[in-house]
């Protein structure tokens, strides 16, 4: 049984804040709720970005997620 969307978002954000590595792939969040469909996890993570709680980080070819302020980039280095 998948958890609710808000609960899923909470779990994703917790992982983003506490994971040893700051930048995470969307797949890293799948384990937050093994019953959720990949698309639900992706949508929840993207919503957290929209709410300003997470950032995208991109190599140009790959996009990853980081809790607000944790991503490493040129201007914040």
């Amino acid at each position: 049984m998948a958890v609710s969307k808000e609960e899923l978002k909470k779990l994703i954000l917790e992982k983003a804040i506490n994971a040893p590595k700051p930048q995470l792939y969307v797949k890293d969040f799948y384990e937050c709720d093994p019953d959720a469909k990949p698309r639900e996890v992706k949508n929840a993570a993207n919503e957290l970005v929209k709410e300003g709680k997470m950032d995208f980080w991109s190599s140009g070819s790959t996009t990853m997620y980081a809790a607000k302020g944790r991503a490493k980039n040129e201007e914040t280095r």
Partner: peptide
């Protein structure tokens, strides 16, 4: 040139 990790406008990952 070097890369910087920025992705752009708010809410977009591309």
């Amino acid at each position: 040139w070097k890369h910087g990790g920025i992705v752009g406008v708010f809410g977009y990952g591309g």
